[in-house]
Amino acid sequence: MAQRFAQKLLRFYIPLILFLLFLLFPFYWMLVTTFKSDVELYNLSLNPFYIYTWSLANVKHLLFDTPFLRWLFNTFLVSVVSAFISLATSLLAAYGIQRIRFRGSGFMGIAIFFCYLVPPTILFIPLATMVFKLKIWDSLVSLSIIYPTFLIPFCTWLLMGYFKSIPKELEECAMMDGASRLWVFFKVIIPLSLPGIVSAGIFAFTLSWNEYLYALTFISSSLKKTISVGLVTELVRGDVYHWGPLMAGALLGSVPIALIYSFFVEYYVAGMTGALKE
């Protein structure tokens, strides 16, 4: 018994704890830096892992001296809109490719996947031209319609995998009972794929939330920036890093994501494993 516990400790808990420490350390660093005063932060003789005197100065600076709340709102808006556009499109695309065996559906699936493989560092130049021509430069509209370019392939593939796990007989049976294709889609497929849809939605939301390159390229006014760009462009002046507010921004910026993940964790796990349990 003791031996078995020791084995489990060695093989399971210790690696798990090490892994956890490794993953959580950046968050701890963020937290510690956020709530330190500058004096303490730059004093190298002190223990950097510990806060001697707590201070809210960094948070105050971030919230009141920069448009951080505006960035937060921008980021949220862009993420929700682009996640919504992507989901609506991907649901139809994934269903079409997976279930309506039209000529070239297999090729279509692969073609969509290849879109995902083209890196943004190549795409942003042609996309910039398009954004200019559409006269949506320096507006959140540009991000809301550019983000789906990488979100749709991603969500489509995730949902295709999920749809595959739903037995075809469910649809066939409904059709024999007199249901139309659309009816089946809305009353059978969508309710059954909720975990998949939720996890695709979360992914789309997170990817938009964290996006940096397009946001940096297509937005220039301070008030229209997203968090990821705003923090770096406004809190790093030349070679001066305002570490305190930067870390406060990073911390506050990751809180919504953490909340969403913990809220939907069950759906999300079910969505990733793709299993439909009857």
């Binding site: 007989e169 469910l170 066939e172 409904a174 059978v188 309710p191």
Partner: peptide
């Protein structure tokens, strides 16, 4: 009407 091998009941 058809009865399927895996029953094909709507789980929801």
């Amino acid at each position: 009407a058809m009865v399927f091998q895996n029953y094909a009941l709507y789980p929801h």
